[in-house]
Design a protein around this nucleic acid. Sequence first.
DNA 1: TTTACATACCTAATGAAGTTATGTATAAGA
DNA 2: TCTTATACATAACTTCATTAGGTATGTAAA
Lengths: 136, 136
Amino acid sequence: MYKNLMYICVSIGDCFVSRNDKTMKNSQLYKGSLNTIIMKLLEENGKMYGYEITQKVKAITLGELNITEGALYPALHKLEAEGILDVEMEKVDNRMRKYYKLTEKGTTETVNRLSELEDFIRNMQSLVSPKPNLEF
Amino acid sequence: MYKNLMYICVSIGDCFVSRNDKTMKNSQLYKGSLNTIIMKLLEENGKMYGYEITQKVKAITLGELNITEGALYPALHKLEAEGILDVEMEKVDNRMRKYYKLTEKGTTETVNRLSELEDFIRNMQSLVSPKPNLEF
DNA sequence: TTTACATACCTAATGAAGTTATGTATAAGA
DNA sequence: TCTTATACATAACTTCATTAGGTATGTAAA
C-alpha cells in the first residue's frame, strides 16, 4: 500500500515526492549485502554502470529492493579504491557513463563473497526453520 | 584458519586474547538480522536469557555466527523498550538471569520479520543464482 | 592458591554501511 | 514548459555492530 501512496496523493493534490519514490523502504536485512550484489552482477554481466545496476536489481527483485544512489555510488568508489573494480568512462547519447568491471582480484574476491553468502543463507535458514530436534 | 589463531599463539607464548576469542569475525551479511534471530529464537523457545541466546546461535550455526555481547544486550533493551519483549529476573545458582519473552505485539511482529526474511532470502537467491533467462 | 575459563550481566567509543536530501546535467514526452 | 527518466555525485545523519572495556560468581587446572 505504501507503493501506491504517490498515485493516491497525486490524485488529491500536491505531493512531496521529490524525485523518486522515497516511500519504498528496504528491510534492514539488506544491510551488508550491497557489495556482494554489485560484485555478483558484474561477474555475470561483464561491465555495468551505476544506474544500470539499480535498475537491474529492481527488475530482478520485482521492485522489492531499491538500491539508493547514496549507497551505490560510495560503494562503487570504495570497491574501486580497494582494487576490486576497474572503471572506464564512456559517452553515450551525450550522457556520461562510468562502466565498472571486476579486476582479477575482484573476480577472486567475488568467489569468496558468494561463498560467504551461501553460508549466511544456510545459517539463517537453520536459525529460522523449524529444525529437526538436535537433542535426538 | 582464523579460528585456530588462539591455539597457535598460545603454543608460541603470550597471546592477547583478552577474554573471548576475538579472532572470529562475522560476515557483514549478518548486519540487520540480529533482531529477527532473537525474535525467532524466543518464539521457538518461549523464554531465554541473553547468554543462552549467544550459545544457542553459536550451536545452531556450528560456530559460524557469534553474537557479540555489545550487540546483543543493547538489542534486547531496545526490543524491550519497543514493547516487543517482556523481561523477568530470576536468580539461578547465585547468578542473575534476565529472561526475555515475546509480548503479544512481539509475537505478531515476529511473523512480519520472518516473512521479510523469506523475501530477503528469495531475492538474494534470485540475484546470485544463475537464473533462467528472463528474456525468454 | 592463584590463574584461567565459563557463566552472566552491562556500557562507551568508534567504525561501517545505508538513508535522506540535496546538487548538477541531458534527453524525452505530455 | 513542466515532468519524468537517465546519470553522475556528495554531505549530514542514523543505525547497527565491533571493540574494548567493567562487574561479579562458580569451577577447574597449574
